Simulated assay, not measured.
Amino acid sequence: MSLSPGDRAAAGLPDDVPTPQVVIEPDADRLARAVAEALVARLAAAQAVHGEASVVLTGGGIGIAVLEHVAGLVAEPVRETVDWTKVHVWWGDERFVPAGSDERNEGQARRALLDSLDVPDFRVHPMAPSDGDIGSPEEAAEDYAAELREYAAEGQELPRFDVLLLGMGPEGHTASIFPGTPAVRDDRPVFAVRDCPKPPPTRVSLGYRAINSAEEIWVLATGKAKAPAVAKALTGADPEEIPVAGVRGTRATRWLLDAGAAAELPRAES
């Protein structure tokens, strides 16, 4: 499903912005598997063009389920088409908690997928934990911004992101950008988030400037609780109200939904 011309006009999308694509699967498990298969194919295609690939991971139930399905695909030799030694792995946001905390997106991703792959350490780029050498989320954000610059082309502040995965909350937050908070208006590529309305309250997040630099953004959402925010985001909501409405990939923006999350779309069909 794509937005109609009328929906594009209502959303205020200029003609040169790629129309968001919507893919709907019957349930969360089939969605996770479909996204995993698409992700493997997209990273392989990026390697064919660039010699390497880059992905920005998200946490949450559906984000981790996708990684678990990727691990299953890697275990099938005939399906493995990605050279994981040539993949850069980044994160869209992270909880500023100790390294061993179960709340860290990094730890969840390592257990679900990364520990079973041959990705070199220098290609895995976690955000700093709270119990390391970096003492504040602000310093952690500055550190991550510096690492992004290190892997960017000369004169650029951000590396190429082939695919950037995002989850979303029922109120429309994405990464750690929540409705009505300063993060919605922060133009830095990475910043600290304090007093987050969802625990844990202290985090580090990419901002729109970094997120929207990605070639492709894939928004993952499951469950009827997210259906109102999905519908608002796809029909022109203000990012101040629904932050996920503010994401746009430079090449493509894909909304990957289960039937529950798609329930309130104008035309809930794939």
Rank of each mutant, 00 (worst) to 15 (best):
S2I: 14
S2V: 13
A10F: 00
D16Y: 00
T19G: 04
I24R: 11
D29S: 10
V35P: 07
V35S: 06
L39F: 00
A41G: 09
R42V: 04
Q47M: 05
A48K: 04
V49G: 04
S54V: 09
V56L: 09
G60V: 02
I64S: 05
A65G: 03
E68T: 04
A71D: 12
A75L: 06
E76M: 10
P77L: 00
P77G: 01
V78Q: 08
V82H: 06
T85V: 05
H88A: 02
V89F: 00
E94S: 12
F96G: 12
G100S: 11
G100L: 12
L117F: 15
V124P: 02
G132C: 11
D133H: 09
D133K: 07
I134S: 00
S136H: 10
S136R: 10
P137S: 09
E139M: 12
A141C: 14
D143I: 02
Y144H: 14
A146V: 07
L148K: 12
E150D: 08
A152G: 11
A152F: 04
L165G: 07
S176N: 08
A183V: 14
V184G: 15
V184M: 13
D186W: 12
D186Y: 13
R188T: 15
C196V: 03
P197S: 01
T202N: 04
V204F: 13
S205T: 15
Y208L: 06
N212P: 09
S213K: 02
S213N: 06
A214I: 04
E216T: 15
L220R: 03
T235L: 15
T235C: 12
A245R: 03
A245T: 08
G246L: 05
G249W: 05
E269R: 14
